[in-house]
C-alpha cells in the first residue's frame, strides 16, 4: 500500500508521520498517534463525533485524508486542558450537566471551541447553529448549548 510522509502539529507538538493514502485524518489521530478522544460515529460527516479544529476551524476528521492535512495545525479534545486545569468549555460541560454518555462530547466541545474563537460573544441561536453538525442522542441539546454559552461568557470574563 502506497505510503506518504507528512508532518502535522497536533496539540502543539509536531509529528513526523508515515501514512497510507487510505488513512483518513481520524485514523491517523486515533490509531497512529493514539488520541482516541476523537470519536467515530458514522464515518460520513453526519454525526460530528470526530469534529476537531484544523487551522482554527471546526472540521470533520472522517472527511479528510491524512495527506490533505500535511502541514496543518490540529487541535483535538486532548489538547484543550492545561495540565490538570480544564478548559472553560470542559468545565462548563460538567457544571451544566451537558454530558451523558459522552460519546458526542469531544466533538461538541471542539465545535464550540472553534465558534468561540471566531465569535467570542455568540447568542443562543448562533450556538444552536454551530452545534448542528454534532448529533447527540442523550441530552436533547439544551444543556450542551447552555454550556457553550456559559464557557464563552467565562472566557470573555477572563480576558477582561
Amino acid at each position: 500500500m502506497k505510503k506518504k510522509n507528512i508532518w502535522m502539529n497536533v496539540n502543539g507538538e509536531w509529528h513526523d508521520l508515515t501514512v497510507t493514502l487510505q488513512d483518513r485524518l481520524i485514523d491517523t489521530l486515533r490509531d497512529q498517534i493514539g488520541l482516541t478522544g476523537t470519536k467515530e460515529g458514522c464515518g460520513e460527516g453526519e454525526c460530528g463525533a470526530c469534529t476537531i479544529n484544523l487551522n482554527g476551524k471546526a472540521v470533520l476528521a472522517c472527511l479528510m485524508l491524512s495527506v490533505q492535512a500535511d502541514g496543518a495545525q490540529v487541535t483535538t479534545i486532548e489538547g484543550l486542558q492545561n495540565g490538570t486545569d480544564l478548559h472553560p468549555l470542559q468545565t462548563a460541560f460538567l457544571t451544566e450537566s451537558a454530558v451523558q454518555c459522552g460519546y458526542c462530547t469531544p466533538g461538541m466541545i471542539m465545535a464550540g471551541h472553534a465558534l468561540i474563537k471566531q465569535n467570542p460573544d455568540p447568542d443562543k441561536t448562533t450556538v444552536k447553529t454551530c452545534l448542528a453538525n454534532n448529533l447527540c442522542r442523550c441530552t436533547g441539546y439544551e444543556q450542551p448549548v447552555k454550556a457553550v454559552l456559559k464557557a464563552a461568557g467565562e472566557m470573555r470574563r477572563k480576558i477582561k
Binding site: 493514502l21 483518513r24 464515518g43 460520513e44 460527516g45 453526519e46 470533520l60 472522517c62 472527511l63 479528510m64 485524508l65 490533505q68
Partner: peptide, 28 residues
C-alpha cells in the same frame, strides 16, 4: 478531483459510482 471532500469521501453516494477511483487530484 478532490476539493472539500465532503461529497466524495463519505462511503454512501447518492447514485455516484466511485468504485473505480484510484487517483485523487487535490486542487486546493
Amino acid at each position: 478531483v478532490i476539493a472539500g471532500g465532503t461529497d466524495i469521501l463519505p462511503k454512501r453516494q447518492c447514485g455516484a459510482q466511485f468504485d473505480t477511483i484510484t487517483h485523487l487530484i487535490d486542487i486546493s
